[in-house]
Amino acid sequence: MIGVVALFEVRDALLDAIAAARAQQLTIVTAFSPAYDPRIEAAVGVPRSAVSAWTFAGGVAGAIGGMAFTIWTVRQWPILILGGKPLVALPSFLIVAFESTILIAVCAALAGFFAGGRAMRRVARAAYEPSLSEERFGLLVACVSADAPLIGELMTRSGATAWRVVRS
């Protein structure tokens, strides 16, 4: 794939460029910013993250797993009666299950984060440069090689301080 990456000093210039690129019906791959910005996110049109789904699945697994595990362990030694309670003393197990729900959900959320960002990280790598984590904003637009100068010019018009062609 060939793309053009443009760098901007200010966020509003980036937003302008995105709007311009949209107007030209260009394929916006992604934008770069040193910090989270909901406006950029909206302008680029990033799809919904699957992290919540991962978390939910992790939580359900943790809840069921925690409860099942505790019940299974006490049934290994059915004579271990404690304090007059039955073997399966659900109120105490609920506490353990709650904690395991949280634990597995947290791990799943993080796994979801890594899994979700993975594809884009590979694409972004070629377009990346260190100033993007300091103060600059970037925009990566997909193109065919012939269009690159035109797009570069479009970006410059929108306020880009520099642009270049990337291949990945």
């Binding site: 004579i79 271990l80 009666i81 404690l82 304090g83 007059g84 003393a89």
Partner: peptide, 20 residues
């Protein structure tokens, strides 16, 4: 030798329990 001994349920490692 309580039937519902408070000592038993707080032991984390089953070092004390109510025998049959």
């Amino acid at each position: 030798q309580c039937d519902e001994a408070p000592c038993e349920s707080v032991c984390p490692v089953y070092a004390t329990y109510h025998n049959p």
